[in-house]
Simulated scan of single mutants.
Amino acid sequence: MTTHAPVLPLWTCGGCGAPWPCRTRRRELCAEYDRAPASLALYMGSCLVAASQDLSWAPAGLLHRRFVGWLA
């Protein structure tokens, strides 16, 4: 279990306080979904949808880069 889980509704990292997903959590997610990149993309897409509701003031492009833009 990671300490780098999102703190809602602000979507900050519970482990380090950075915007979630933080660098550490991104590495963990890549390792967890190593053989299932499409599943990781779906998961992060669902987080993007939830975050866009909580962070309605944030620009859509910024949220997109934050939640799915880092996926390779």
Rank of each mutant, 00 (worst) to 15 (best):
27 R>Y: 06
1 M>F: 07
12 T>K: 10
60 A>V: 14
23 R>D: 13
9 P>K: 05
13 C>K: 02
9 P>Y: 06
38 A>N: 11
30 C>H: 10
5 A>F: 04
52 S>K: 10
44 M>D: 01
6 P>E: 09
18 A>I: 08
40 L>V: 07
33 Y>L: 07
52 S>I: 03
60 A>Q: 13
35 R>F: 12
71 L>A: 05
66 R>V: 01
4 H>R: 12
56 S>Y: 15
41 A>T: 02
60 A>G: 01
50 A>P: 03
65 R>E: 12
30 C>P: 00
64 H>W: 09
58 A>G: 01
20 W>S: 02
31 A>G: 04
11 W>F: 14
40 L>P: 08
63 L>F: 13
43 Y>I: 00
59 P>L: 04
66 R>E: 05
46 S>E: 09
42 L>Y: 07
40 L>K: 13
67 F>S: 01
2 T>M: 11
16 C>G: 05
41 A>Q: 11
48 L>S: 04
64 H>F: 12
4 H>F: 15
7 V>D: 01
27 R>I: 15
65 R>N: 08
33 Y>W: 15
14 G>I: 07
57 W>D: 15
49 V>P: 01
43 Y>G: 00
19 P>C: 06
67 F>N: 01
59 P>A: 10
29 L>Q: 11
42 L>C: 05
31 A>R: 06
25 R>V: 13
63 L>D: 02
16 C>T: 03
44 M>H: 02
41 A>D: 00
57 W>G: 01
15 G>L: 08
46 S>Q: 13
22 C>M: 06
38 A>Y: 05
62 L>V: 13
70 W>Y: 13
13 C>N: 10
14 G>Q: 07
59 P>M: 05
30 C>N: 10
25 R>G: 00
28 E>K: 00
45 G>L: 05
28 E>L: 07
62 L>R: 14
8 L>T: 05
21 P>S: 08
60 A>M: 09
18 A>S: 14
38 A>H: 13
53 Q>S: 10
43 Y>F: 12
